[in-house]
């Protein structure tokens, strides 16, 4: 990790005007995406999906099914991209890794006492090391929201930095759990801290807290990524997760990315959707674009 000499004072707050953010989102939502550009968007969104199963009831069997779906989203459509990654708990990383052997789909593991983050730093780091050892390509960590909301920004910085150290070359996504940070200024601050501390990606939510990803929050995070890029020349990825269920919303997110960060971010290396049901809706829309008619959900495999 490169040394960042000019780390800002995180006690300073970057002002964010909520009304202005909502207006910008609403304006971007008015973009009309038709014809080829719609088809391109649907395929692009599919290639950016992190198929996720994060339940207490997960089993190796369930994970293997998900991995097959990840590689073969819908057999009847040619030239369909596979998804970007499969996201599981650390104890299922090995199963996922084996099932995805030979594909270029990554295995992401949620770690650091997902979803609350309420563990000792040592035990959380241990979990990261375990997941990395099991073969995870990406680690999705959570920050300690309690510490952040108490104003212990150094703690947040240090936990991200320590996790990144434990990750080594493995890709680190930092989940801010924006639904618990509540204000957009907090979202901005947590984004800045994570990026300066070594995050490769910043991610909105665990999916366990409502609200999960929203477009205003995503826009603020994209703008934080842009400012970080302006200052450092380093491109950080973005992952909205949770609550994105349909293609229309997914395309709206892509518009946000394109018009805030530009086309360099329109690929799975720098933008992901954390979603479980989105992939099938994208597939349904792709079939609709190709055939002109909607098919029943029964023609699409659930996982």
């Amino acid at each position: 990790m490169e040394v960042l000499n000019k780390i800002p004072d995180f006690r300073d707050t970057v002002p964010i005007d909520t009304v202005g953010v909502l207006e910008r989102v609403s304006r971007l939502n008015k973009r009309s995406i038709k014809k080829e550009s719609k088809m391109d968007a649907l395929k692009m969104a599919l290639s950016m999906c992190d198929l996720t199963t994060l339940e207490g009831m997960d089993t190796p069997g369930k994970v293997r099914q998900l991995c097959y779906k990840a590689q073969h989203p819908h057999e009847s459509i040619p030239d369909i991209p596979s998804v970007a990654a499969v996201c599981v708990y650390p104890n299922l990383v090995r199963t996922a890794k084996e099932s995805l052997k030979g594909s270029n789909i990554n295995v992401a593991a949620v770690a650091t006492y997902f979803p609350s983050g309420n563990g000792t730093l040592e035990s959380r780091i241990e979990e990261v090391k375990y997941a990395v050892n099991e073969g995870a390509d990406e680690i999705d960590m959570v920050i300690s929201r309690g510490a952040f909301l108490r104003g212990e920004y150094n703690f947040t910085f240090d936990e991200v930095a320590a996790t990144k150290e434990a990750c080594g070359d493995v890709h680190l996504k930092v989940i801010l759990e924006t639904g618990e940070l509540e204000t957009l200024e907090n979202v901005r601050k947590a984004s800045d801290i994570s990026m300066y501390a070594g995050a490769d990606f910043i991610k909105t939510s665990t999916g366990k807290v409502s609200p999960a990803a929203t477009q205003p929050v995503t826009l603020v995070m994209l703008e934080a990524i842009r400012d970080f890029y302006y200052k450092t020349g380093i491109k950080i990825g973005m992952k909205p997760a949770g609550g994105i269920r349909d293609s229309k919303t997914a395309i709206q997110y892509l518009v946000l990315v394109k018009e805030t960060l530009g086309i360099d971010w329109l690929n799975p290396d720098l933008f992901r959707f954390g979603a479980s049901s989105l992939a099938n809706d994208l597939l349904m829309q792709i079939v609709k674009q190709q055939t002109g008619v909607y098919q029943s959900a029964d023609y699409f495999s659930k996982d």
Partner: peptide, 16 residues
């Protein structure tokens, strides 16, 4: 790290 960071808006996914 890029030395001269620049945002690019054209050339991919232009709206029809």
């Amino acid at each position: 790290k890029t030395d001269q960071p620049k945002l690019n808006f054209d050339g991919l996914w232009d709206y029809d």
